[in-house]
Amino acid sequence: MARNRKLDPEALRELRQAFHEECQRGVPIGRAVKTMRTIAGLDQPAFARLLKIAPRALMEIERGHANPTLHTLEKIGAAFGLQVGFIPKDR
């Protein structure tokens, strides 16, 4: 499987912690997916294969130009112990 440059353990821990904190506040889907892929250390084609989705679909999701199905979002989230749900909207 192709990989991005490897993050050192401390940088990876900090990225995961920042991601989980951001998820608590709400994060756009594209940015969340790209961050999860970065944490996994995979490039887009490898992450798409892992999730069993088309590489083009993953690229469009990360760019914020896609309308992924709930099933696709659940597959992406499940790989990181996350579930899809509603969050309060900032006023």
Rank of each mutant, 00 (worst) to 15 (best):
R5C: 10
Q83W: 02
P68G: 10
F80M: 09
A40H: 12
N67R: 02
A66Q: 13
E21M: 06
L70S: 04
K89G: 08
Q83N: 06
G41M: 01
R5W: 12
T35P: 09
R13M: 05
R13S: 01
G85A: 07
P55E: 03
R16H: 02
R63V: 06
G30W: 04
M36L: 15
F80D: 00
Q24W: 04
L15G: 08
F19P: 13
A11D: 11
E62A: 12
E74I: 05
Q44K: 14
A18R: 12
E14S: 14
P88C: 03
G77S: 02
G81A: 07
A11Y: 07
A2I: 15
K6P: 14
I29Q: 05
Q44L: 02
H20D: 00
V84K: 00
L58T: 03
Q17K: 02
A79F: 01
K6F: 11
A2E: 14
I87R: 05
P45C: 03
E22I: 01
M1A: 12
A32V: 04
N67C: 09
N67Q: 08
T35S: 08
P9W: 12
L42Q: 09
L15F: 03
A79S: 05
L51F: 11
G41Y: 02
L15I: 06
R13K: 00
I39F: 04
R91V: 11
R5E: 11
E62Y: 05
R63I: 12
A32L: 02
